[in-house]
């Protein structure tokens, strides 16, 4: 037993997320082709791609909304197909589409999520208060979700995704349609989670100003990973002046950042 423990200690930690040779089709339409991607523990990893690149399909596979028919996906070493419970436990998700229940309060949304992770009522209340305070929405706890702005809803979704203390957070286009201030609060908060708590993040976006030079980046285009590395290395590899130009050279013109 002691020898086994030593072995386990000696083994390197698996990636927070490992996507190996994953392909997916909708009928005859190929959405993902042989996608390989990894997110290291405690790293902010950006998944860049235009609309229709396959980001949401990949998220649906990671979260097991769709079955992985070709390839393999592991979350902290747990195969999402063979051990979905363990994989989903280690995973916090913010989908591109809003997933809050508009008819109940902010706190009730969080308590419902806690129940879906088997967290008891008392513990859930304490955690809900903590995560809401972190996203600066403690005072809106009892308000109906319907009363919140788009940015506030997003912050609640991020708070909810963190309620069960996942080690990997996957976030799909979280800032689309938000104003600059809301966007900044969200990006800052998620980056703080990475820096202070070592949470690994997969951040899917087509907005290049959300990517920092040292971030790991994967560029998804028409269902394929066409480049990967840090933002700095991508710029260097493509010989571009900045990430926008590098991205454009890989996939075509990048969308304009909202003012």
């Amino acid at each position: 037993m002691a020898a086994q423990n030593r072995l386990a200690e000696a083994a390197p930690a698996p990636p927070a997320l490992l996507v190996e040779d994953v392909s997916h089709s909708y009928g005859t339409r190929r959405a993902l082709e042989h996608v390989n991607l990894h997110v290291a523990p405690g790293r902010f990893t950006a998944l860049l791609g235009l609309n229709g690149a396959g980001k949401t399909t990949l998220f649906s596979l990671i979260t097991r909304l769709f079955d992985v028919r070709s390839g393999r996906i592991r979350v902290h070493g747990h195969d999402v197909t063979r051990a979905p419970g363990e994989a989903l436990r280690a995973l916090g998700v913010v989908f591109q589409a809003r997933t809050l229940d508009l008819d109940i309060s902010v706190r009730d949304n969080l308590l419902y999520h806690a129940a879906l992770h088997g967290i008891g009522r008392r513990e859930a209340r304490a955690r809900a208060a903590d995560v809401l305070a972190e996203v600066e929405l403690a005072e809106r706890e009892r308000d109906s979700v319907r009363q919140l702005s788009g940015g506030q809803m997003r912050r609640v979704e991020i708070a909810r995704a963190l309620l069960h203390r996942p080690r990997l957070l996957v976030v799909d286009e979280p800032t689309v349609g938000l104003d600059v201030a809301s966007k900044s609060v969200i990006v800052t908060h998620v980056r703080r989670l990475v820096a202070e708590r070592g949470v690994a993040v997969l951040w899917a976006t087509h907005l290049l100003d959300e990517v920092a030079a040292e971030d790991d980046v994967f560029v998804l285009h028409r269902g394929r990973i066409v480049a990967d590395g840090t933002a700095t290395t991508l710029i260097a590899q493509t010989g571009a002046a900045d990430l926008r130009s590098a991205f454009s050279s890989l996939v075509g013109p990048a969308p304009e950042e909202p003012a």
């Binding site: 083994a11 698996p14 070493g77």
Partner: peptide
């Protein structure tokens, strides 16, 4: 990874929490 990724299931109490949470919602 199997040495690192240990499995732990849910207790009956946690199943009950989940069920009551869904009914409550």
């Amino acid at each position: 990874s199997s040495t690192v990724a240990t499995r732990r299931g849910f207790t009956p109490g946690q199943y009950l929490i989940c069920l009551s949470g869904i009914v409550w919602r």
